Simulated scan of single mutants.
Amino acid sequence: MIPWGEGGGTDTYARQMAPIMEDPLGQSIEIDNREGAGSMLGSEWLVQQDNDGYTFGTVNPPGWSFTWRAQEVDGWHPDDLEPIAHSGVFGYTLIVNDDAAEEAGIDDFGSLRDAYADDEISGFGYQGAGSDSHLTTLMLRDEYGLEYDSAVPYDGGGPTMEAVIGGEVAAGFATNTSAVAAEESGEATAIVNLMDIDLDHVFSGIDPISDYGDSLAWITEFYQVQVAPPDTPEDVRETIMEAVQEATEDEDTQEWEEETGNIVEFGDMDDAADQYVGSVDEIESQVDDAIGGFDEFQRMVDEEEDEEE
């Protein structure tokens, strides 16, 4: 289960590794995209599934933990899910529609900011209302001067990427993974790296957001963590964990990593637990330090809605 639409970062990793996992598992793997509510719909569905080992999913803390806390989800907690493994690290970039970029002379964050301020471009896409991407969008507006005229939420990186490629919005969020596909389309270009991880080897000359303010890595860098429904036995999870390890170490995956710049790394069951168990408390602390807490985030969202009305 992938709690995002097709074409985003989490989905792209899954589609690379799932076929390789089938042989060690002795089972075929069907990828089930259950997007909506910033990954919460699919995650809630996973919590309710049987614990027989035939269903597992990939989540992406700390962004996943942020969204759970921001939406004040009832009935389940991220810590309820059982750890399996983690398989990589990815994060956010900003992409811009090539036609809009050419017309407005956009090639870095400064020129993107100027184009919005001068009303040369319109629309900015982000990945899910109430999500980490939503907060980052508001922070880019309030602390980095990105004066977009309207911000539009989409269900994940794939739909946001398609909106930028199609010109529905001039620019928006992509994971570094889906930004590769955006560039390959010939219709959009990655221009800003929101992570601390260097992406220049993938997107030559990409502009780091840290040149314009504080690091955003605490909310723009994510782990790919495989999890199972509550009470899935440890020995069952170990079987899946071993298949994840084989997939991350496979020659085809290593070539994919080199070609795309996606970061593939294996972490075992304990490493996976370290990435998300207790992550809600950690993200609460980070949000408090950054903007004054989740109540302030809600105030920012409400203010945004009032301005749009």
Results as ranks from 00 to 15, higher is better:
residue 53 G to S: 01
residue 89 V to I: 04
residue 90 F to M: 13
residue 58 T to A: 15
residue 91 G to V: 08
residue 35 E to I: 07
residue 149 D to R: 11
residue 129 A to N: 08
residue 131 S to M: 08
residue 95 I to C: 02
residue 155 D to M: 05
residue 71 Q to T: 10
residue 97 N to S: 02
residue 144 Y to H: 06
residue 153 P to L: 12
residue 91 G to I: 10
residue 37 A to V: 14
residue 123 G to I: 04
residue 137 T to I: 02
residue 91 G to Q: 00
residue 65 S to M: 05
residue 133 S to N: 10
residue 46 L to M: 05
residue 139 M to K: 12
residue 57 G to Q: 02
residue 61 P to M: 12
residue 123 G to E: 04
residue 152 V to E: 07
residue 88 G to C: 01
residue 103 E to A: 13
residue 79 D to S: 09
residue 104 A to M: 04
residue 38 G to Q: 11
residue 55 T to V: 02
residue 134 H to V: 09
residue 94 L to E: 03
residue 147 E to G: 13
residue 145 G to L: 06
residue 43 S to A: 15
residue 31 I to C: 05
residue 137 T to L: 00
residue 139 M to D: 01
residue 116 Y to Q: 05
residue 145 G to C: 00
residue 116 Y to E: 03
residue 156 G to I: 12
residue 41 L to V: 13
residue 130 G to V: 11
residue 133 S to R: 08
residue 134 H to T: 11
residue 73 V to G: 07
residue 92 Y to S: 12
residue 82 E to C: 08
residue 100 A to R: 09
residue 69 R to T: 13
residue 30 E to H: 15
residue 78 P to A: 03
residue 43 S to E: 11
residue 65 S to A: 15
residue 67 T to A: 11
residue 51 N to K: 04
residue 43 S to W: 01
residue 39 S to A: 14
residue 68 W to S: 13
residue 139 M to H: 06
residue 104 A to W: 03
residue 142 D to I: 08
residue 55 T to F: 02
residue 38 G to R: 14
residue 59 V to P: 04
residue 52 D to A: 13
residue 112 L to P: 03
residue 152 V to P: 09
residue 121 I to Y: 05
residue 90 F to R: 14
residue 64 W to Y: 15
residue 117 A to P: 03
residue 141 R to M: 06
residue 89 V to K: 14
residue 118 D to T: 03
residue 63 G to Y: 03
residue 95 I to E: 03
residue 119 D to K: 06
residue 79 D to M: 05
residue 51 N to E: 09
residue 144 Y to A: 07
residue 149 D to H: 07
residue 48 Q to N: 04
residue 57 G to F: 00
residue 143 E to M: 08
residue 132 D to V: 10
residue 99 D to E: 15
residue 143 E to H: 08
residue 142 D to V: 12
residue 51 N to V: 00
residue 31 I to E: 04
residue 56 F to G: 06
residue 126 Y to F: 14
residue 145 G to R: 06
residue 82 E to S: 00
residue 33 N to M: 09
residue 64 W to T: 14
residue 101 A to H: 03
residue 75 G to R: 10
residue 79 D to P: 03
residue 134 H to K: 06
residue 154 Y to E: 04
residue 148 Y to W: 15
residue 62 P to V: 12
residue 54 Y to H: 13
residue 85 A to L: 00
residue 88 G to H: 02
